[in-house]
Design a protein around this nucleic acid. Structure first.
Length: 587
DNA sequence: TCCACGGCCCATATTA
DNA sequence: TAATATGGGC
DNA sequence: GTGGA
C-alpha cells in the first residue's frame, strides 16, 4: 500500500532549506552536457558553483555527457591554447586535455550534493576519457570497486549490426564464466565484466555494506551485480553502446528527418495531455538531447534526427523568438491545468479526468464534494492521500524498508522449511532504488522464493508470486525504467527476427513479459481493426495456438533464461546493469 | 494511406 | 448471470 | 507526431 509519508520535520515541504552546504563553492563549471541538465546546472549554481560558457584558465570541472567520446572532447577543445596533459584512451589513441581541469559525468554533481562534499572526480570520469588499462590487474581493480578501467576510445558507431549470439548454452555450474557479452570475441578490450568469486553468504554481507555506504550516494558507476547465482563487476563501454542502440531503435533516431512543411502557425486546439503523441514528442526531445552541436540556424534544426515536420516548426519558433507560442497557450489553458491536477490523483487516467471536467469538476475539492461521480476505490484512496502520495521517499528510508522486508522474508522461509536452498532467494528493492535514485516515489520489493518453496502455499500475503524460473524476467521488468522497458520489448518484438527463427522457424520476434520470453509471429502489416483481447467470439476462426493481439501468434518453445544476462544475450545485446537503464534523466 | 508505438493484471461498466 | 469492453496501474 | 510498409 501507499507508504505513509510524514512531512520532513522542521523544513516546510517545498521550501528548499535555506542553509544548504555550498558544496560547489569555488568550482568553476563548464557544462558540455546540453541534455536535460537544467536541474543539475541549477542545483550546482545554487550550491556555490560558478558556471562558465567555455573552458578557461580557471575552469575546475567540465561536466560531460556520459557517452562522450575522446574525439568529441578533442573537437570541443579545439582552440584551447593552455597547458595540456595527454591521456591514452586505448587502441593507441590519445587525447590532450587541459591541465588541472577535471572531466566528470553529471553523476558527479548529483551524487556530491547529498554527500555535502565533492566526491572524487576520478570516479566519475566519462568512459570515453578513461585511461586505457595499464595492466591486466584492471579486472581486479574493477571488482574491487575502483573505477577508471574504461575502454575508452573506440567509436561509438552503431555499425555493429546484430551480431547474433552464436551459441546459447546456458551457464551451468562449472562453466559459468565465459559469457561476457553478446559481442564477438575480438581483440577489443572486453572490460565490461569480470567474474567475482562471491559466496552467497558474502552476497548478503556485501549487500549490507553497499547499503550502508550507499544509502545516499547510490551505486557507483562500476559495481558488482548479481547475475543468477554469480556476481560480476560491470562497467563501461559495452552497456553504453547497448543503451545507445536501444535508444536509437526506440526513438527512430537513425533516420534523418525531412524538410519542414509550409505549415507554420500552430492550431491552438485543446491540447491532449497524453496518448500516442507523447512517444513522438519523446522522440523529438531525444533527438535534441543527443544532438551535441549548437542550434543557431533553421538549417541546423533540419539536421537534427528524430524531429518531424511539426516538431521542427516548434523548435524553429523557439530559435527565433526564444519561446514557443504553445507554451503561453498551454499556460493560459484552464482546461489543461485542471486536467493536469486531476491526473495526479492515483487511479485517474485521461478518460476519467476528461469526463469529470465535462461534468464541471474544476478542483480537487469539487471532486471530493461531488457524490455523483462514482469514483472507483482506487480513486477514492488516491484522493484521500493525495498529498501523502506526492511525497518522495528518501533513499535511506527505502533501504530501511528493504531491510525489514528482507528479514521478515528470511524468517518466513525458515518457518516454511526452505532453508536448504535459501541462497536462491531473491529479496531486494528494485525499481528506481535499484537504479540508484536518491529518492523514490514508491518501494518496489521483488521476492522470488527458492525452488524448494515454489510449490508451497505461501501466497496469502502477496498479490503476486514469482517462481524461481521467472526471476530473471521479473528482475528485468522491475529493474528497468519505463522507457527502457518498452524499448527493450520493442526491440525484441521487431528487431531480432533472425534470432527468433532459431527457436521456431515461423517466428519473427520475441515477446517478453515479467515471467517469460517466447517467440512470436507478427504479421508484417496489420490491416484494419485491432481485435479485443481474450478472443472468444466465434465469428472468425482463431488460429490454433494462443492468438494474442491483432493477429500476433505466440509460439513455442519459451526461451529459458537462467539469469538476466541471458535475456540481453538472446536479444543480441550486451548486458546493461540496472543503474544504466535510462535514456536520460540523471536524477 | 494506413499502421504501430510494452504487456498484462485488476476493477468496474456495459452488453448479450 | 456471463461475456465482453473500457479504464487504469505498473 | 512520426517513420515504416
Amino acid at each position: 500500500m501507499a507508504p505513509k509519508r510524514k512531512a520532513p520535520g522542521g523544513v516546510a515541504a517545498g521550501s528548499p532549506a535555506a542553509k544548504e552546504p555550498q558544496v560547489f563553492s569555488g568550482c568553476r563549471l563548464v557544462f558540455w552536457a546540453h541534455r536535460h541538465m537544467a536541474v543539475t546546472q541549477q542545483r550546482a549554481k545554487q550550491l556555490g558553483g560558478v558556471q562558465q560558457p567555455a573552458v578557461a584558465a580557471d575552469t575546475t570541472h567540465v561536466i560531460c555527457p556520459p557517452n562522450l567520446t575522446a574525439q568529441q572532447a578533442a573537437d570541443k577543445l579545439r582552440g584551447w591554447s593552455g597547458p595540456t596533459r595527454e591521456v591514452a584512451v586505448g587502441q593507441g589513441a590519445s587525447v590532450r586535455l587541459p591541465e588541472g581541469v577535471a572531466f566528470v559525468t553529471p553523476d558527479w554533481v548529483s551524487r556530491s550534493i547529498p554527500k555535502h562534499h565533492l566526491l572524487p572526480e576520478e570516479q566519475f570520469l566519462p568512459p570515453g576519457l578513461a585511461p586505457a588499462p595499464a595492466s591486466p590487474a584492471a579486472a581486479t581493480q574493477a571488482a574491487a570497486g575502483h573505477d577508471g578501467a574504461g575502454t575508452g576510445g573506440q567509436q561509438q558507431q552503431e555499425q555493429q549490426e546484430q551480431q547474433q549470439p552464436q551459441q546459447r548454452e546456458h551457464p551451468t555450474g562449472a562453466d559459468a564464466e565465459q559469457h561476457r557479452d553478446a559481442a564477438p570475441a575480438g581483440p577489443e578490450p572486453t572490460s565490461s565484466t569480470a567474474t567475482v568469486p562471491f559466496s552467497s553468504q558474502q552476497m548478503w554481507a556485501a549487500g549490507q555494506d553497499a547499503q550502508q555506504q550507499d544509502v545516499l550516494q547510490g551505486p557507483a558507476f562500476c559495481r558488482v551485480e548479481r547475475r543468477g547465482s554469480e556476481f560480476v563487476a560491470v562497467q563501461g563501454a559495452k552497456p553504453l553502446q547497448t543503451v545507445d542502440k536501444l535508444r536509437a531503435y526506440w526513438f527512430h533516431t537513425h533516420t534523418a528527418g525531412q524538410e519542414a512543411p509550409p505549415t507554420s502557425p500552430q492550431p491552438p486546439k485543446t491540447s491532449q495531455l497524453n496518448g500516442v503523441c507523447s512517444h513522438a514528442i519523446d522522440k523529438a526531445v531525444q533527438g535534441l538531447i543527443m544532438w551535441n552541436e549548437a542550434l543557431e540556424s533553421e538549417e541546423d534544426v533540419d539536421k537534427v534526427p528524430g524531429l518531424g515536420p511539426k516538431s521542427k516548426v516548434k523548435v524553429k519558433e523557439i530559435l527565433a523568438k526564444g519561446t514557443s507560442s504553445r507554451i503561453a497557450a498551454a499556460a493560459a489553458d484552464e482546461q489543461r491545468k485542471v486536467l493536469t491536477t486531476l491526473l495526479e490523483v492515483w487511479g485517474t487516467g485521461t478518460a476519467s479526468a476528461s469526463r469529470w471536467y465535462s461534468l464541471g469538476v474544476r478542483t480537487l475539492d469539487n471532486l471530493r464534494s461531488r457524490t455523483d461521480l462514482n469514483l472507483t476505490e482506487q480513486q477514492r484512496v488516491g484522493l484521500k492521500y493525495y498529498d501523502d502520495l506526492k511525497q518522495k521517499i528518501p533513499r535511506a528510508e527505502v533501504a530501511q524498508t528493504e531491510k525489514i522486508v528482507r528479514e521478515t522474508c528470511f524468517e518466513l522461509i525458515e518457518r516454511w522449511g526452505g532453508t536448504a536452498d535459501v541462497e536462491r532467494t531473491y529479496c531486494s528493492a528494485t525499481g528506481s532504488y535499484l537504479r540508484g535514485k536518491p529518492q523514490s516515489s514508491d518501494v518496489d520489493i521483488l521476492i522470488c522464493l527458492p525452488p524448494s518453496l515454489s510449490h508451497a502455499d505461501c501466497h496469502d500475503f502477496l498479490t503476486e508470486v514469482y517462481a524461481s524460473s521467472t526471476t530473471p524476467f521479473a528482475l528485468n521488468y522491475f529493474g528497468n525504467s519505463q522507457s527502457f522497458c518498452r524499448a527493450t520489448r520493442y526491440w525484441a518484438n521487431t528487431g531480432v527476427a533472425e534470432a527468433a527463427r532459431k527457436y521456431n522457424a515461423a517466428a519473427n520476434g520475441f515477446k517478453i513479459s515479467d515471467r517469460d520470453m517466447v517467440p512470436i509471429y507478427r504479421p508484417p502489416a496489420q490491416r484494419h481493426h485491432r481485435r479485443s483481447r481474450g478472443g472468444g467470439g466465434g465469428s472468425d476462426s482463431e488460429g490454433d495456438a494462443g492468438a494474442a493481439d491483432g493477429g500476433t501468434t505466440v509460439l513455442e518453445p519459451a526461451v529459458a533464461c537462467p539469469d538476466e544476462t541471458t535475456i540481453f544475450r538472446e536479444l543480441g545485446l550486451a548486458y546493461v546493469p540496472p543503474h544504466m537503464r535510462y535514456f536520460h534523466d540523471f536524477f
